[in-house]
Nucleic acid binder design. Structure first.
Length: 226
DNA sequence: CGCTTTTGACCGGCGC
DNA sequence: GCGCCGGTCAAAAGCG
């Protein structure tokens, strides 16, 4: 399952075909990798979405790079191809800036640990810090629970949550120095919708993105010699 | 063999 | 104080 987030599509190039393969890298039709267009770098800001607005969000308006790197308040253009197997993104909410009246900005059965004053805890003699970190939740409509966001995750827990038919899964980024976490839960109200909550900021590049960009950079270096 | 997933136990916060 | 609940740990099992 998480193994499904391994590299599905290897970079379509090799060092032996560097110059000729350049136009073939990251074509628009590539279902797994799609470079941002320059226009996506300075997108018009979108209003912060409330959960009940989720049906009105165009999936093409989500800035996945900002979202997945934990940068709050930056929304821009991104190809829908970034969403892997997900057929439609239905909404997103910034939990780190939301004022969070009861039940308004929370997933079903969800309580924000920050709001519960859960700053520090100790489990099994191991201290855990619970500092204020950026949290983003967004909803996707898919039959698959796992969103391939390019990072590698290790599942460390699963819990049945109150008022939900489906368990909540807890994942941690596998990068040594990165402690970004995410929660995944399917809505019982609409079983086609999966809620993904990211917590924290990655302090390392996206493996899959780097895997994609590396051969491109090599070709750029190669071509720059002429 | 190393990495990931599973799953029961444990912990702290919160409400009563 | 007690029970409920969400979040995490960690040992065992699974997998390539």
């Amino acid at each position: 399952m998480e193994g499904g987030q391994e590299h599905m599509n290897p970079p379509p190039t090799s060092s032996s075909t560097l110059p000729l393969s350049l136009p073939l890298i990251l074509p628009p039709q590539n279902p797994s990798y799609q470079l941002f267009t320059p226009s996506g770098l300075n997108p018009p800001p979108l209003p912060l979405l409330q959960p009940h607005d989720h049906q009105s969000l165009n999936p093409l308006d989500i800035d996945w790079i900002s979202l997945l790197s934990g940068q709050a308040g930056h929304h821009g253009l991104v190809s829908h191809d970034q969403i892997s197997n997900y057929r439609a993104v239905t909404g997103m909410v910034d939990l780190s800036t939301a004022t969070g009246s009861a039940g308004e900005n929370t997933i079903e059965g969800d309580d924000d640990p920050e709001q519960k004053g859960c700053k520090k805890r100790k489990v099994g003699g191991y201290k855990m810090r619970k500092a204020t970190r950026p949290r983003f939740a967004f909803q996707t409509r898919s039959t698959d629970d796992i969103l391939d966001d390019g990072y590698r995750w290790r599942k460390y827990g699963q819990k049945a949550v109150k008022n939900s038919l489906y368990p909540r899964s807890y994942y941690r980024c596998t990068h040594h120095t990165c402690n970004v976490k995410k929660q995944i839960q399917r809505l019982s109200k609409d079983t086609s919708i999966v809620v993904t909550t990211y917590e924290g900021t990655h302090n390392h590049p996206c493996e899959k993105l780097m895997e994609t960009l590396t051969p491109l950079l090599r070709q750029m270096q190669f071509l720059s010699r002429f």
